[in-house]
Design a binder for these strands. Sequence first.
DNA 1: CTTTTTTGCACAATCGATGGTGCAATGACT
DNA 2: AGTCATTGCACCATCGATTGTGCAAAAAAG
Lengths: 352, 352
Amino acid sequence: MTGIGKKKATIYDLSILSGASPSTVSAVLNGSWRKRRIKEATAQLIRQLANEHGYTANLQARGLRSSRSGLVGLLLPVHDNRYFSSMAQSFEAQVRSRGQCPLVVSACRDPEEERQVVETLISYSIDELFIAGATDPDGVHKVCEKAGLKHVNIDLPGTLAPSIISDNYEGARMLTQAIIERALEDGPLSPDDLYLFGGRNDHASHERIRGFRDVKRASLGADPDVCIQPTGYSPAMTARAFEAFYEDHGKLPRAFFVNSSINLEGLMRFLALHPHETFADIIVGCYDYDPFGSFLPFPVFMIRQDSDAMITKGFAILDADRRPPTTHLVRPSLVPPRTALIGPLDALKDIE
Amino acid sequence: MTGIGKKKATIYDLSILSGASPSTVSAVLNGSWRKRRIKEATAQLIRQLANEHGYTANLQARGLRSSRSGLVGLLLPVHDNRYFSSMAQSFEAQVRSRGQCPLVVSACRDPEEERQVVETLISYSIDELFIAGATDPDGVHKVCEKAGLKHVNIDLPGTLAPSIISDNYEGARMLTQAIIERALEDGPLSPDDLYLFGGRNDHASHERIRGFRDVKRASLGADPDVCIQPTGYSPAMTARAFEAFYEDHGKLPRAFFVNSSINLEGLMRFLALHPHETFADIIVGCYDYDPFGSFLPFPVFMIRQDSDAMITKGFAILDADRRPPTTHLVRPSLVPPRTALIGPLDALKDIE
DNA sequence: CTTTTTTGCACAATCGATGGTGCAATGACT
DNA sequence: AGTCATTGCACCATCGATTGTGCAAAAAAG
């Protein structure tokens, strides 16, 4: 009703307008007024004035006073990836439904950047922090602990804080199994025909590689080290690994396990430079789900990690305030080729 | 060095430790100390103490006092999409490099939610806001204006604030042209063979449809209304539209323009339910780039929108403080099938 | 050795909301 | 009428940093 471009109304403004004291106004507007035995009529009046003037609390002031901000942070390695952006989407929804404000930031897999970003978040007095896919979870943990900030690790575990991670071993087993079965349909598969690309020196990669090797050894009888090609988490490095293999062998492996959708992007870069015959018969497994990746012109088995469940569990742990740094496994699911799963987008209303 | 779990140090703590007054400490630590003629030695001492005790400013307090927070907001429709997540990635990088803190939130294309989210951001005294793909940019504008918050529209224009958008008309022309040329390689193309799916009643859709129709009419001589199928921005609705077409015609159109990668997901859902022959010969154009979408088992032309340039321009406009709500067009680029572009991920260091 | 100028800093108000404490007015009860 | 409990609210300190102002002490000028 009022001002255009004017300063925002404060409890002091409403205090003058209503004739009540600022603390009364505050109590009415933050809900603690019953406890303070404010008359219903007074509350009514103040609420009405607040509405008329479009009052909204200054959350910085509230946060300063109460040393809680209503902000919940999610630290991501990167945004630009379906796994993490889907996690961000779930995170936002859950934080909102708890009446808090989500703050999603990425730290580019740089340990120093991670710590610094978290320092910044702490300066805003965030209430809780989800650390997803951190390169150095324990480093971040220390920063949080010093500030007394509750936090959990998601996706990559730390040793010092509770962690919720995908059951990478089981997921990798499922995926490897699926790849092998599918490859056997086309004829016998030698151990040299099945490779793994991507990942690096982190817990998730280790577990996935372990699952891959266990199943491979059990099914194919052998598991040569050369078939494991950890390339880091970069499309460029992954593409180089495919390129190198191709140089050596004149073709790609018949079947392979790709550690993440980021690595799968590396495969795309390789494909862009080579004719279709190069990969007409390959069979791919990717430890991540991407709706378009699932429809590539060769069979792609994918693993869908349940990031929504991870976030839910994360809140449960934070709420329970369990201290021991336990690790919780969340089962992922296998997605056969040519599958379009519904995602968080489907929750949006789009009438038309 | 100090406390584990202790409260964070404040300027008052450092004031006691150093023997200087809080205001001196503040001045030293926020850089305004030269102006205040603080002795170099005093500054040294305070900085050292600050380091030792891991002091970081309480940004809520600072924000409260100075009514600036150092936060810059980006309002997104959704995270879970390469176009927007890539924009988030660029945004983060640019905000960081300006020494501010990015705050990325999504509002699910819900006008009410958009306004509410922005209200919340305003309560945190954010300094600037980028409004990307808002359903109701002018509604958001009013909220911002009332609070005196500087803002720009990205991707979808408003009439009341400066807007930076993709040159949708030109992009659509390029894309349509490319589809037609490619289709003609397989034989003559009738106007009934070229459809457009997706989009709704927004500026971007209008412009894209206009570009599509103009090129189509010029190239194919006609442009029946039935070939335009606005399905909204939802995979499910889009899938239904493909399904409906298929029911009627027993096949998909030979060639079609898909309004966004979200709509392209709808195509994936259709594909999942039908055999390969159904779409063996289709030619697709998608107004968005997705690295996996580019390698689907049929030719997919894509448009890559330059979100990084849009953000850059956005900051330029905010910095220049130009008031007139002008609209700036940013040229997108055409991406031929089977192309793996490098993206923000490639900026990450990943040594190994 | 004064007077003026400069240097170096302390003081105190302020941003907006919160919550403990105290106190007047009202009603209940003896 | 006097005592006591209850109701309804105002007052004030506080969170941590910023900033305008004032004032000694040191340095420069006379």
